[in-house]
Amino acid sequence: MFDFLDSGQYDLLDAFWVTVQLAVYSAIGSLIWGTALAGMRVGPVPIMRSFGTAYVNVVRNTPLTLVIIGCSLGLSQTLGFSMGADNFDDIGFRMAVLGLTAYTGTFVCEALRSGINTVPVGQAEAARALGLGFFQVLTLIVLPQAFRAVVAPLTNVLIALTKNTTVAAAIGVAEASLLMKEMIENEADAIFAVFSVFAFGFVVLTLPTGLLLGWVAKRVAVKR
């Protein structure tokens, strides 16, 4: 039933490696971008606050497929924006990372903002009373505590992100789901086997992430 795996025709590991790379780069990007967005949304500058709010509400409510195809067709093919890559594969990969980051960043931002709400006001007041500026209060006192409070919801976001990388197939990035499409066409008689191989592949990626971060969440929790 699973003989198609031995044919040597399909490079499963290669495809999943691209998925892993998409997930890791986008995770790093969206954690940074989401933190910056959260900083804007809680900051004292009105224009930054409005930008943060508008951005989150627009992008979070746009389908990911639209965001990623928008990056590819709009930014790359129409505006000629290539993010420093010179071949079709690299451009596609980078556009997918950009789209995933832009999209997932909004969820990171909102998870983080709920974490900021768990930090008692007195923490920021005490920090301000010591003479720390807004940026220092945010980065030294509030965000470190907020992050510890939201490891569990951020795990959800990262797991969703890992599975969302399959949308990159829409712009031709050679990750796992693109290979699956090809295999479905060629191995129509073993369709359930194909599905289960890919489902298993994603579980292998996401289950350890969930377990590891669940352990981290317990370790770093702030005792009050």
Binding site: P120, G122, Q123, E125, A126, A127, R128, A129, L130, G131, I141, P144, Q145, R148, V222, K223, R224
Partner: peptide, 17 residues
């Protein structure tokens, strides 16, 4: 200026982390 003015709160407000 705040750096020159110490403050002690009712609820301590020590940095919990």
């Amino acid at each position: 200026l705040r750096a020159d003015v110490g403050m002690v709160f009712q609820s301590f407000n020590l940095f919990a982390h």
